[in-house]
Amino acid sequence: MKPIYKRLIFFAILLGIWELGGQIGLWAEIILPPPTKVFTSLYVGITDMTLVYDLIASFRRLIIGLVIALVIGTSIGVLIAKSKTADDTIGSMLLAFQSVPSIVWLPLAIMWFGLNEQAVIFVVILGGTFVMAINVRTGIKNVSPLYIKAAQTMGSSGIDLFIRVIFPASIPHLVTGSRLAWAFAWRALIAGELLTTGPGLGYTLSYASDFGNMSLVIGVMIIIGVIGAFVDQLIFQRIEKSVARRWGL
């Protein structure tokens, strides 16, 4: 059987149990509303445009934050790959920062920027920057010495060597770095929005929770999960695969 059919059957069974369990009273509706209710609230949210506005607002923050994170992360990565001193100092700090979930910066960010969008974007930037920097560093450090030697015998050196050989040779790691940066930034965004003001998916989730609207809570969770999986598998993993193939990895 094709994986797609297995998946369809699996989800159909899951939804069936979920719906039936509620109907025969295994759990109260406030604990776990049935899928029909969840999809109704999703439908209402989309047709009255509230969820659409949330999505647009969230994506705006995400894209601003992610782009800044990728630019800063790439710059730091190049710096620590090329300078031993920078690697010994900034490099060691990066690993420590990377092991701290970026959401813990939110209290500080609120002090610095106020309880607003900027604080969320700040957390998104921190979420993506370090993992990007670490991957860019790895990519540049792992460029095959053979490429560098070959380029040198063809008269390339210095900046020219970096732009025409070292940087393109490390693109597979750049793509992986971007994929991870996106994943971290996406999680940081939702966490940040939960704790600040709207509009935004995270804000709507916490708002719905305050009013006991569990079917909307689950609806937003589904949107978050679907978007996360969609971007990762249909965009980043495809790019990663085609790059890996061409780069002969």
Binding site: K149, A150, T153, P168, A169, G248
Partner: peptide, 12 residues
């Protein structure tokens, strides 16, 4: 000009 054992072509 140098030719190595591996072709060392740039894959990109």
């Amino acid at each position: 000009g140098m030719v190595f054992q591996e072709a060392a072509l740039f894959p990109w």
